[in-house]
Structure formats: structure tokens, C-alpha cells
Design a protein around this nucleic acid. Structure first.
Length: 304
DNA sequence: CGCTTCCTGACT
DNA sequence: AGTCAGGAAGCG
């Protein structure tokens, strides 16, 4: 459920409570989400007695750096939540609680995950335990050095995937998910079903700027909370109020007034404006060279 | 490259 | 009963 801005918000709300604290012990309420080759008993045992040095993020992965060179890795996937409590409630009172770490100041960190799709593991000093998904991650979406326009152009060249599918691929760029991909494509005025390899350099530049702008917007507004998402302190984000297409099917596009459409692309529900995001290029040939104003009401975003 | 699967709950 | 959900590995 959480994408880059949500995980970043969790990181920021969690770090002050966690850094400098030592894990006293861990209750593994339900070990089904513990993967990555570390057995539940090994994980809980190895966590105890270690002190948190920092809370980092890589893509949608949270990385809690611990003494002894260990990293506690958490991926929340679709329905995971991290909940820090100064005075932890009884275990039985937390619905879908999978794991609780008690800290040395009497507080606790709960890993809550309704659908059990999340993943928790401990990475040893040699990084040997790093799961494939983390190892093979592409550049950070907000790292403009690594995730540059030139990089994106190169990765898209000759690709026959939909642009939406490509942006969802964490090997290409780390951190985007369904919401922010739809929002980025809308801001860039690009149809989500376009083949990645068919985008012009100008379009890629616009898209790159839109991605940065949308993600920074998301962080500034503390993420999207339309349902389950909360930060580590239980607070909602209010980025939902600033979304232009996601979750707005049937509502007028805020740019041009055309009703937002919803379809399925790259196996995911996809919202887009059929006017601001016309396909534009079909089979490598510009569909409408003169005709309508291609400048589009959306205009370039953040393409500085 | 795209579809299915993992899992559980909410909504139509 | 059927569909869908913010993710991503795995399969054909």
C-alpha cells in the first residue's frame, strides 16, 4: 500500500522514536511474513539487545540500521503498517498484529499486516542475506544524479512495455507505485498505455519532471491515506486531496473538465484523463500532426 | 512482456 | 458471488 512518499513519511515519524533505543525482546505473533531465509526464531533472537542507529529508506523498503552491522529490513507491500506506541496496547487488542518489538524505554514497534503480503527480515553484516528485490532495485526516484532524464531515456529505448508498466518496475526506478505513476503520467500529459519506447525525448523530460514533482508533493502532504495507510504515529496523510486522477474516475479532470476514465493497464487499475492524455503516437507515427493543439492543457511540470 | 498468485477484507 | 485493493515474484 505505501509508495515512496508514504514510506518516507513513516521513516521520518519513526526515526525519532527508534534511534538510540535498544530492542529488549520481540514477540512474533504471526511469523508468516518473515521471509528472506531468516527463521522467525533467528530474527527475534538476533534483534534482541541491538540498538537502532538510523532509519533509512531505499525505494519502498525501510532499513533500520542496528549495532553489529545488522539491518532490519521491512517491506510493507499492500496492507502493512508500522505502528509505534509509547505505551503499547495488549497484543490481543491489535488486529492483524504480526510482530512486536519492545524497546528499552517501554515503548514498542508493531508490524501490522492484514493481508500478510509484507516482508520482514534481518540482513547480516556481510549483506549476504539481502533479498533479491532490494539488491536489484533501480535508482532512487528522487536521486536526480542516478535517476536522470538521460538514464530514463536509455532505459526506455526500444522497450515495448506500456509506460505505466515500465514505471511500476522497481528495477527501472525505485519508489513509484500505482498512485504516483498515474499522477505522474497525468501531469506529464502522457497516456499510460503508450509504449515506453515510443516516447519522444521531450515527453521523457516532461515525465521525469512530473515524477519528481508528484513525489515531492506526496512527501510534503505526508502521503495518501484513502484507507489503511497511517504513519508510524498513527496519523493520516492528506495527499489524497491533491490527487488529480487516482480515485477520481468519473469526476471532471481538474485541468480540462473531461471526466476521468478508469481502465486496466499493466494489470492494475488505471485512472487517466482521455483528453489531457491522448495516445498521441500510434505505432510509431504521430497520429495527429497538425490538428488539435498538442501543447495540452496539462503543460510541462517541473521540467526546469 | 503480461498475466497470475500470494492473502484478507470491503464493497457492489 | 464477484470484484477490487497502495506490491512484486514467478510463470508461460
Amino acid at each position: 500500500m505505501p509508495e515512496l512518499p508514504e514510506v518516507e513519511t513513516i521513516r521520518r515519524t519513526l526515526a525519532p522514536h527508534l534511534v538510540g533505543r535498544t530492542v529488549r525482546h520481540v514477540d512474533l505473533v504471526d511469523g508468516t511474513l518473515v521471509q528472506g531465509g531468516v527463521l522467525p526464531a533467528g530474527l527475534t533472537g538476533a534483534l534482541a539487545g541491538r540498538t537502532a542507529l538510523a532509519v533509512d529508506r531505499r525505494g519502498k523498503y525501510l532499513l533500520i540500521r542496528l549495532t553489529g552491522g545488522f539491518t532490519w529490513m521491512i517491506h510493507l507491500r499492500m496492507s502493512g503498517r508500522l505502528s509505534w506506541q509509547a505505551r503499547p496496547a495488549a497484543l490481543s487488542e491489535v488486529r492483524f498484529l504480526r510482530l512486536r518489538a519492545y524497546l528499552d524505554d517501554g515503548s514498542a514497534l508493531d508490524v501490522v499486516d492484514m493481508r500478510r503480503l509484507g516482508m520482514v527480515c534481518l540482513i547480516g553484516p556481510g549483506e549476504e542475506g539481502a533479498p533479491q528485490g532490494l539488491r536489484d532495485l533501480g535508482p532512487e526516484a528522487l536521486d536526480s544524479e542516478a535517476f536522470s532524464v538521460a538514464y530514463l531515456v536509455a532505459r526506455m529505448h526500444g522497450r515495448d512495455v506500456t509506460i505505466k508498466g515500465l514505471l511500476l518496475d522497481q528495477h527501472v526506478v525505485a519508489g513509484l507505485g500505482n498512485i504516483y505513476v498515474d499522477e505522474s503520467l497525468h501531469r506529464a500529459g502522457i497516456h499510460p498505455g503508450r509504449r515506453a519506447g515510443s516516447l519522444t525525448r521531450v515527453e521523457v523530460r516532461r515525465l521525469h519532471g512530473a515524477i519528481r514533482a508528484v513525489l515531492l508533493d506526496g512527501i510534503e502532504h505526508l502521503g495518501v491515506s484513502f484507507s489503511l495507510y497511517r504513519d508510524a504515529e498513527g496519523n493520516r496523510g492528506f495527499m489524497s486531496d491533491y490527487l488529480r486522477v487516482y480515485g477520481r474516475a468519473g469526476a471532471p479532470c481538474q485541468t480540462c473538465g473531461t471526466p476521468v476514465e478508469r481502465t486496466r493497464i499493466a494489470g492494475r487499475g488505471t485512472a487517466f484523463c482521455p483528453r489531457c492524455q491522448r495516445p498521441g503516437l500510434v505505432r510509431g507515427v504521430r497520429a495527429r500532426p497538425g490538428g488539435t493543439k498538442l501543447r495540452g492543457a496539462a503543460g510541462p511540470e517541473g521540467a526546469s
